[in-house]
Design a binder for these strands. Sequence first.
DNA 1: GGCGTGACTTGAA
DNA 2: ATTCAAGCCACGC
Length: 108
Amino acid sequence: MEEVSFFDKVYDVARLIPYGRVTSYGAIAKYLGAARSARMVGWAMNNSHTKDVPAHRVVNRVGVLTGKHHFEGTNLMQQLLENEGVKVEDNQVVDFKNLFWDPAQELR
DNA sequence: GGCGTGACTTGAA
DNA sequence: ATTCAAGCCACGC
């Protein structure tokens, strides 16, 4: 019996993202065993504003800030990432593959 | 209660 | 190599 919902797991993993690192929706989904349900991760993030989830550290699989439109400001997400040392250019994370944080690999 | 949408991903043509 | 299509499941109207 899992008392934790899929959404809660997403929030939990998202909070585990280290400083200055980023991950993708699919990576989280895959870690939760729902690799094809990446959309649900995104939808879960829709409620992230009610949680203390650093959704700005979550981008799509190519490192593009797809959800930046959902933040308060238009460049708030980019601002936060740059504040952590993550360079963002044209809504895309620079050196994304180097900054990529895979829960399935880091958390094992 | 059905249909469409959505912060995505992967695979096939 | 790029482009198209399908899958996943919850929420809103």
